[in-house]
Amino acid sequence: MSRLKLFLPLGLFLILVGLLYAGFSLDDPARLPSTMIDRDFPSFEMSQLEDPDTMVTEAIFGGRTVLVNVWATWCPTCKAEHAELQRIQEETGLPIIGINYKDDADEARAWLARYGSPYEFNIYDPQGRLGIELGVYGAPETFVVDAQGRIQFKWVGDVNRRVWNNEFLPVLQALEDQAAL
């Protein structure tokens, strides 16, 4: 038994190699299933980043389709996707609500002032409490919340043009079709 124990480092290493090798062979992106899909947006009560005295609850949802984007100033990928969010907001007029995740409020406000804000407003989540409720892995993540306040889609990682066209547009199209019925 103690002999077998000595093979443990080798075993762990081989698992790592398997993971690295998977990177070469996987072309088709496998999705992480999210337990949040088709559920109501979790209830919360948190302050707004832009105006800490204003409290925000899940009542902000409903009546329209919105994007919810989880971001932070410590996250370089968030900065990379920032321009794309601005483009989306300008071209589609889709409201984007930000969740400023585990961040410093002053830095976050300065960041928005410097780079411009695509957000209608931001929910300030310094402890990541709402993040836990939403099952956030890391920043950035983007959710589609429908007019009934249900989460319809979740994307982990940056939203770029390709992701937007291939992943988000079909979901939004389906929502529009449903509403038209």
Binding site: L19, A30, W74, A80, Y137, G138, E141, W155, G157, D158
Partner: peptide, 20 residues
């Protein structure tokens, strides 16, 4: 390695930032 593995598996990108 988590973001690396994540990108390999899904093509998406994310940052596990200083908070972690």
């Amino acid at each position: 390695l988590y973001p690396l593995a994540y990108e390999w598996l899904t093509g998406g990108r994310l940052s596990v930032g200083p908070p972690f």
